[in-house]
């Protein structure tokens, strides 16, 4: 019977970490794209579209991510196809991320002073031109720190996908624990790996916030 050395444990965990990273990237990029749509719906001139976006955001922010994962997993199965865990995990995380990013970005767009809308409108710009050349470039600067900050939540959120059977870092931690009977060491290492993924993002968010604020106050 083979024995797990410390190196074996670490290597297995790091292999699984790749999937945590990949799922985080997919969720963040996909959530960013869908979140952009949510943003445009949330600030659109049509009332029903605004309400729809608000309902979407409230629903996804007001319910546990774990429930959303279960609903994606069993909901997709209703279509009569076998659902791989990665599909349900990716879908749920993208929709969840989109709700949060959409709401964060709405705050950033609304932080652009009204006069900017009026000025660009008086220059004869259409809605899309206003967005493209005036509003979004200014909103972007405000948006970067909280967006980077939210990426930490996405990385941590991927841990829940272990519960619906996606094999990533947390799942690997459980599997390795069951093989080695060393929960203290294994979960300690798992926590450390998550920390190494998340902490730089947290720090980057703080540094960006300070830098971009300084630039702002020089005007």
């Amino acid at each position: 019977m083979g024995q797990f050395t410390f190196f074996d444990i670490l290597r297995n965990l790091l292999i699984a970490t790749q999937w945590t990273v990949i799922l985080s990237l997919v969720s963040f990029v996909g959530g960013g794209i869908v979140g952009g749509l949510v943003l445009f719906a949330r600030i659109s001139q049509s009332g029903w579209l605004r309400n729809l976006a608000r309902g979407y955001i409230e629903l996804l922010q007001g319910t546990p991510l774990l429930m959303q994962l279960f609903l994606a997993f069993f909901g997709l199965a209703l279509f009569g196809v076998a659902v791989p865990a990665w599909l349900a995990a990716g879908l749920a995380l993208i929709l969840w991320t989109a709700a949060f990013l959409g709401e964060i970005w709405r705050g950033c767009v609304e932080a652009v002073p009204r006069g900017q809308w009026e000025a660009s409108s008086s220059l004869g710009m259409g809605y899309l031109q206003q967005m493209r050349y005036v509003i979004l470039p200014q909103a972007l600067r405000v948006a970067i720190p909280p967006t980077v900050g939210f990426s930490v939540q996405v990385v941590k959120g991927t841990a829940l996908t272990s519960i619906i059977g996606f094999i990533e870092l947390t799942r690997a931690g459980t599997v390795v624990t069951n093989a080695t009977y060393q929960p203290f060491l294994v979960y300690g290492l798992v926590a450390l790996i998550y920390f190494c993924l998340c902490w730089p993002l947290s720090k980057a968010s703080q540094v960006l916030e300070r830098k971009l604020n300084v630039a702002h106050s020089h005007h």
Partner: peptide, 14 residues
């Protein structure tokens, strides 16, 4: 910093 940068699920398991 440690708590804010690790998933709640892992804290629970630990």
């Amino acid at each position: 910093e440690l708590i804010r940068n690790t998933p709640f699920l892992i804290q629970l398991f630990f």
